[in-house]
Each structure stands twice: as structure tokens, then as C-alpha cells.
Nucleic acid binder design. Structure first.
Lengths: 153, 153
DNA sequence: ATTGAAATTACCGTTGA
DNA sequence: TCAACGGTAATTTCAAT
């Protein structure tokens, strides 16, 4: 995990379709050298895949909310199952503290949010925060180079 | 925004490197037809780009936390500026409710989390939840097809 | 179907442990 | 001396048109 690999990760995070030749230009390496590094990053699980970035507003899903869920003691497993089955749940974090789960949900309309919350309320006490804007959104921290000359993996 | 476009979005979300030919097979369309659809999705801003998916643990960043920040009335702008400058902040949502901002942060060590929280505390009251696991994480809702034959864009 | 580009392979040189 | 890494070049595959 040297500085070059961090650069590659950051470059691929920003544009997952850069070619090895292009990456090579940017990190001052040959295409095969880059290919080998990327292959190892993929093999080690550091890179788990490549995906399109989607603007939910532009596809007709204008509403997103954060939902904190204080799950009833006996309903933990049931809750997890429910959450994983709900299409509208974009992310679900299991966290420390009284609110065991924090969900990010995306819906077409407030009425759909309503029915969603109804289902969650059967198994938990919820606290809902509507997302007004998202000034920061990325896959990994910026400027790792600063503290990083570590031996990893 | 017909059913085929939803399928394309979902396929590209899962694998941003699928070729037009491969996509064509999966949605029963010719490669050029798919290319044209994807081009329009990109042009309209529905697809904003393509990126690598990164496993933070595997790259030596094992700790992530959610931080709710109740920003002091007079410090809103200053807070936003600070947050956008912090490398460790992966996402920042501006939300309704007393906690104006919810951050997701990723760090190498608890001591780094400590210094990060120190800086936030100057401008806000914070509540920190350590992320134990993330059972769900995706870019867009699953199974949009259900309610969706809408005319969008 | 053709053209061009990118991925991959093979081979060799350098370096550092 | 050997293992790891990078460069060059040739080949093959494959995607875009």
C-alpha cells in the first residue's frame, strides 16, 4: 500500500473506466505495471467492483431521508430481515448507541415514505430526518497520502 | 424512463464495466440501441459517472462512524466549510431536525477520530455512533419496476 | 465487417534484501 | 542469489462504428 496505490484507488474512485494506459500516465508507470497493481487491489478485496454513480433526483426519486431505529429488544433479527427486504432502503448501518440502526431511504413521494415508516414502526421506535442536501459524498477519504506510508495487507 | 432504462441503471450500478453488447443481451436490445440509451442517461445527468467500489477495511481504514452535529446558530457557514475541508468525511447530509448535519467519517484509528471530533466540537454539539456493520449499501432502490411506468425528464 | 484501441502475455533489465 | 517490480514489445481480443 504505497503512495502509488493510493493514487490509483483515488483515480479509480473518481473514474472507474480509466484505462491502464491513462492511469499509467497519471502515476508515471507503464500500462502493464498499472494492470498488475490494479489486479492485486482487486484480488485483495480493496477494490470490490465498479459501478455507475446515479443521481436519484434525475431518475424520479426526489426524496431521501435518514431514519434512526431503536429496535425492540426481541425484534432485532426480524428487523434486520425486514430492512434487507425493503427496496427503498439504500443503506443500513448497525451502530452503537440507543439507535441500533440508521437507515438511508429513497422514495418517490412522501406517501411512500409514510407506508415505509409504518412498517418500521412495528418493530422499532423511529426518528426520521429529511435530507435537504448532501454537500459531501465520496467512497473513501481524501488525501490519504498525508499520514500514509504504512505497510498494509 | 421505461422499464428497460431501469434495468440498465440497475445493471450498471452493479457492474459499471458491462459492455453495450453484454447489456444488450441482458435487456434484449442491440448494442447500438443500448449505447444510445446509456448516452442519454449520461447526458441527462441520471448517470453522473462510474467509479470503483472500495473496501475501506481492506485499505487500512477500519473505523467508520456516524456523527450527528447540532451546529451553533452563528457557525453554520463556518461548519460547512470545515466539513468540506476534512479528508476523513466520507459523506455529509444536511437534514431537518435539531441535528442539522449528519456525517459519515472514516479513520485509521480512534485517536484520529478523537482529533476530528475535537475540531467539530468547536462549532457544534456532536453525537457519535460507531458503525458496527453495514448490512445494506447500494446506489439506488431495488426493484423500481414495481411502481414505475412514469414519464420522467 | 472493419478498424482501432486496450488488455494481456512474454521477456528482459534493475534493484534491493 | 533470488524475489519483486517495472519497462518494452508483440499478440490477441474485443468494442465501437
Amino acid at each position: 500500500m504505497d503512495k502509488t496505490n493510493w493514487k490509483l484507488l483515488k483515480l479509480l474512485e473518481g473514474n472507474g473506466r480509466l484505462t491502464y494506459a491513462e492511469l499509467g500516465k497519471l502515476v508515471h508507470l507503464s500500462a502493464p505495471a498499472v494492470a498488475e497493481r490494479v489486479r492485486k487491489l482487486e484480488e485483495s478485496g480493496a477494490i470490490t467492483g465498479y459501478g455507475a454513480k446515479i443521481n436519484l433526483e434525475k431518475v424520479g426519486i426526489p426524496i431521501t431521508a435518514l431514519v434512526e431505529c431503536q429496535v425492540y429488544r426481541t425484534k432485532e433479527r426480524e428487523f434486520k430481515t425486514l430492512v434487507m427486504s425493503l427496496d427503498e432502503v439504500i443503506s443500513c448501518h448497525n451502530v452503537t448507541g440507543p439507535y441500533a440502526f440508521v437507515l438511508r431511504v429513497a422514495v418517490r413521494s412522501m406517501s411512500l415514505l409514510d407506508v415505509l415508516l409504518e412498517r418500521l414502526i412495528d418493530l422499532s421506535d423511529t426518528n426520521t430526518m429529511m435530507v435537504l442536501s448532501t454537500p459531501v459524498s465520496r467512497e473513501m477519504p481524501a488525501n490519504i497520502e498525508k499520514g500514509a506510508e504504512l505497510e498494509l495487507d
